[in-house]
Structures are given as C-alpha cells and as structure tokens.
C-alpha cells in the first residue's frame, strides 16, 4: 500500500505537536529509513546502477522541515536527497523506479539517485554542492514578486557553506528579504573530509550569523525540535521576515556514497559512529512515543511490517517496469 503523505499543521501558535502529527512524523521517518534499508539490502543485485547517498541517520531533519511546509512550498536539495524527496511527498514507486533506471522513474531514468524530482510534490535536487541554493532563492524571488505566501527551502550540507555560491545566495536573499529557509544539515563530513580540517572551530551557525539574518543551531536528530523550529521559521518567512538559517546537527551512518558501513576506513572511528547510532532519530522518537503512550510497540511493529511491504512492492514494481525507449534519448534537450 502506498500511503499519500499528509500535511498536518501545528495545532497552536506555540507549535506544540498533537498526537496525529507525532505519529505522522514517526511514520514518515520510518518510511524513509525502510526505503533506504531496502536499497542497502538489494544494492548488490546491480539493478540500481546509480551512486546513492543514503540519508540513514539524518531523517529527522528532512521530516521535521518538510512536515512543516505546505504542499506547494518548494524544496531544493543536494545529492543526499532521498529523505527530502520522500518527506516532501515524492512518489515512492517513482523513487524505486528511478533508482532502477526505469521509464516509470521520477525522472524517467534520466538521473538516478542524486537528482530526484517530483514536480507534483514540488521537490527538486541536483548533486553539485551548493548548486540548488540560488535556485531556491530564485523561487523565493518569484514568490515575492507574485505576492504568493509560499516558502522555498534550500537544504545544504556543511560543506556547501564553503562554496562561494552559498554566500552569494544568502546575501541576495537577505538584501531582497526573501521567504527562503536555509537548512544546513551538518553531518561533520564532506565525503571523507572532516569538518575540523575544512572550517574554523567556531559553531557554523555563528559564522553565518548577521544582524539581518536569524540563525540557530538545533539537534537535527530530534524530529520534534526540528519541526518546531521549522514551523516558526516558515511562519516568519510567510510574514516577510525571511530569510532564516537553521543548522541541524546530525550524522550519516553509512559511507558517503554506497550502502556499506565504513568505520574500518580510518577517517572516522567506530566509537564515533556508534555514539551517533545511539542518537538515531527514529529510535529516540520511538521510545518517546511509547513512553508518552502515543503509539505502542505492537502498533509500531504493524506499521513497520506494512511499510516494509510497501518497499518490497515498490522495488518489485520498479523491476517489472519498462526501460526507457532508446528512441527517447534525445527528448527534451531543448
């Protein structure tokens, strides 16, 4: 079964989360995790011939932010885009089909993992660091020119702020007071290069901070905190108080690209990876939901089984889908 994503706004101005919303946040995170665990399980089968950058461990950022958006708000994402795509409501079958290079893929097999687009869900991605940041700003410019109350989100990694285009885009958004939310997913590494060799030791969000720009740092593995911060920021953007920058502290558990674990490779320690596995956003939120009697283990097990079934079905469906016709190779270049 392929559930349609639900967009449930916060219940009151203090951004307290109701039970339905909490369940929804959990379900979406679990869905993304299980989708990517499916990729891990089947990647060796060689049906997904596309470099994949897994979001496992970072789901709370994508889900917290995207759940606070309206459907026609737009999301722009870099290479590690699976979580953003699914959290914003990107089609699941099209997701697996794209990874398998099929005609039914989100981009008809043209781009694979790092470029996932779903126009209906208003989510776009491209894998050059920082390349989608100005596109989000341009979308926000159009929103403002047309007096629409829409918001654009630019997801970016910690390395993207090292790119000049980030500074250029941020500056333009500030000067024009645009409704754009910059969400930095600080996972401490750019490929295998640690943050400490790339940036000064001061907190990233402070280095971005300006008198004209509201910035904050939050625990990116706490989906409730992310959702609350996002709701507030998005509301400010809609009121013309944008742009806003949020740094979310998080961590990718798997290797930079591919389905494996890599703590034997020397650039990060097993201890470090394990400490972050303990902070897994899904595990944390699950025990909170159980403790708060919002969901019980039985319900969660049933949900997990149901979602796993969705993933299996989507993968099988992808493999049964046709390849793109080679006659369409030159379609839509111009």
């Amino acid at each position: 079964m392929n559930r349609k994503p639900k967009y449930i706004p916060a219940m009151n101005h203090k951004y307290n989360l109701n039970k339905i919303l909490k369940r929804q946040l959990f379900e979406t995170m679990l869905k993304i995790r299980l989708a990517e665990e499916k990729i891990v399980a089947v990647y060796h089968e060689q049906h997904m011939r596309t470099p994949t950058h897994l979001s496992i461990g970072q789901e709370a950022v994508a889900v917290g932010i995207c759940s606070a958006l309206k459907k026609d708000d737009q999301v722009f994402s870099p290479h590690r885009c699976h979580a953003h795509y699914l959290a914003k409501g990107g089609n699941l079958n099209a997701f697996f089909a794209e990874l398998c290079g099929r005609e039914t893929g989100s981009n008809r097999g043209r781009v694979g993992s790092a470029h996932l687009t779903d126009e209906k869900a208003h989510v776009y991605a491209s894998p050059i660091l920082g390349a989608m940041i100005p596109v989000a700003v341009g979308a926000a410019l159009a929103f403002k020119m047309d007096r629409l109350k829409k918001v654009a989100v630019a997801f970016l990694g910690d390395a993207a702020i090292e790119e000049g285009i980030f500074t250029e885009s941020l500056n333009f958004a500030i000067v024009k007071k645009l409704p754009v939310l910059f969400v930095c997913e600080n996972n401490l590494y750019s490929t295998n290069s640690p943050l400490r060799v790339r940036q000064p030791p001061s907190p990233l969000y402070k280095r971005v901070s300006l008198p004209e720009l509201s910035t904050q740092q939050i625990d990116g593995n706490d989906v409730e905190k992310v959702y609350q911060a996002a709701s507030k920021a998005i509301q400010q953007c809609r009121r013309g108080k944008g742009p806003i920058f949020i740094e979310c502290l998080t961590y990718r558990i798997h290797e930079h690209v591919g389905p494996l674990m890599d703590y034997d490779k020397g650039y990060r320690s097993k201890k470090e990876v394990e400490s972050w596995i303990k902070k897994c956003p899904i595990k944390r939120f699950k025990s909170k939901l159980i403790k708060g009697r919002i969901m019980n283990s039985k319900e969660i097990d049933a949900l997990t089984a149901e979602l796993k079934k969705d993933m299996n079905e989507a993968y099988v469906k992808a493999l049964q889908s046709p390849w793109p016709d080679t006659k369409t190779l030159l379609d839509h270049v111009y």
Binding site: Q74, F76, Y124, A131, M132, I133, P134, V135, A136, V137, G138, A139, A140, L141, A142, F143, M145, D146, A152, G164, I165, E168, S169, N171, F172, V175
Partner: peptide, 22 residues
C-alpha cells in the same frame, strides 16, 4: 543586484521555474 554572477544565474533558474521570464 549584488555582483554575484553564479547566484544570479541560479536565481534566474528558480524564478523561471516559477513562471517568470528573467
């Protein structure tokens, strides 16, 4: 605009995506 040729081009793309003709 600011002197930001790279960002301005990306901004043109984002605006064009949203029914503008920059």
């Amino acid at each position: 605009t600011p002197a930001s040729e790279g960002a301005l081009t990306g901004i043109a793309i984002g605006a064009a995506l949203n029914n503008k003709r920059p």
